[in-house]
Design a binder for these strands. Structure first.
Lengths: 236, 236
DNA sequence: ACTCCCTTGTTATCAGCGTTACATCGGCGA
DNA sequence: TCGCCGATGTAACGCTGATAACAAGGGAGT
């Protein structure tokens, strides 16, 4: 059994280690974040890190989570999803993402370029929130490409843009690059006018049935089968 | 003075080390490429690496140069710049770049994600050839944005796309992502807009895909099949 | 032909890294 | 009070990149 005092001190020392690692990362760069340096800066022994985080990657993940949490809490954070417009929300999220990358260069490079193996929890978390935003676009009938395709395009563009910006000295960065990239992707992804304003299931199905014969990449048999199923679902 | 025999043997052992490092990188992954492992695999002593390459980064750069050289020589390499059309040349170069990244995952991740400091020679070389291609676009009056802006956009999109593709298991990679990203960037960059696919049909299909799970009167298998066909049609 | 010097080969070593085995201590239940 | 068990502290392991020190060899210049 673990007493409350234990967990409190445990969380305290955990927070202290994360803070020390964060400060070390920000001030001395990524290669200065060693287990020994972090332990000394936090006033603990080196093995403590492994008891609390299991691994150095675990420590990095905790640092990433902490930095992201403090960042989003530092923002006004109200305009992030309050708008009813899915496109505006996506733009807002994009700007926040790019700004975060430029504000925390070492951390972003550390978590975004993890060579092989599983991606970092921060990456999958970011992908998840992006996926939700893209889903809202799709549900509103604003996408003219596959949802997965849209997701990957935005993700690739954002990551590539941030890494490109980080790769050049900060005084000669093209700060409009982010907006330009987002515009380019949105231009290729969005249906300028919502194709089917009525998003009720049946209405969409009916609209879809009218364009089904023009759908590329399918065999006639597949098209016929889809038409039959559509008919059965609509007459249900 | 250095005699011809000296340089020959020097180049021989150098090539051997590079070959050993390349094979080690391809077969055992990036973290298996240590100075000792490379030296043992090449049949030389560890300090030889430092005499010939000065640094481990120098060795990595030499490996990158070698792999890229063999890659472009392995390609037909004729269609890379032979066409008079600058846009077609850019597309060809883009495809080659993406294909190279997917063919050499460890090497690409190694040279493209070099955290801080100067970028690798391979990166600046790639940026140089891209810059030349973009300059040809600008000289032909095909750009509607700044030349530097166009360069960075293509670079960001390419790097981000390759990293995104490498970040997911190879069997579920969206191979059309590269073309889609290039189309998106070219659409925002070129004065003459390339042909865009019919928007209404795809938009309706995408919207329909979002309501497909709620479609009544169908079996799960039928829904799954329709979803698969829809995805295939949309990713074309 | 002889010496000199530069290149190569070899060994040993350094400082640092992530990580772990092991002794030790302290508080808790019986 | 005793014994136990988990948290802590110490020391170490195996590995990394990187060099210093030194022996051996073989053309270059005289």
């Amino acid at each position: 059994m673990v007493t409350t005092q234990d967990t409190a001190s445990r969380d305290d020392v955990r927070a202290g280690i994360v803070a020390a690692a964060t400060q070390l990362l920000r001030e001395k760069g990524a290669n200065a974040v060693t287990t020994r340096a972090v332990a000394q800066a936090a006033g603990v022994q080196a093995p403590t890190i492994y008891r609390l985080f299991g691994d150095k990657d675990g420590l990095i993940d905790a640092v990433a989570e902490h930095v992201m949490a403090t960042y989003v809490s530092g923002k006004s954070a109200a305009a992030d999803v309050a708008t009813g417009d899915p496109v505006a929300d996506l733009r807002s999220g994009w700007r926040t993402h790019v700004e975060f990358g430029l504000t925390n260069p070492e951390l972003y490079a550390l978590i975004a370029t993890r060579g092989s193996g599983a991606p970092s929890p921060a990456t999958v978390a970011g992908l998840d929130v992006l996926r939700r935003r893209v889903r809202r676009l799709a549900a509103a009938g604003l996408l003219r490409v596959d949802e997965q395709r849209a997701l990957m395009m935005i993700h690739s563009a954002g990551n590539g843009t941030i890494l490109a910006l980080l790769g050049m000295p900060s005084e000669q960065r093209d700060l409009g690059l982010g907006e330009a990239m987002l515009d380019a992707v949105l231009n290729s992804i969005l249906a300028t006018t919502p194709a089917t304003p009525d998003t009720t299931t049946n209405a969409v199905a009916v609209t879809f049935a009218t364009v089904l014969p023009d759908l590329p990449g399918l065999t006639d048999a597949e098209r016929a089968l889809m038409a039959e199923w559509l008919h059965r679902s609509l007459t249900h």
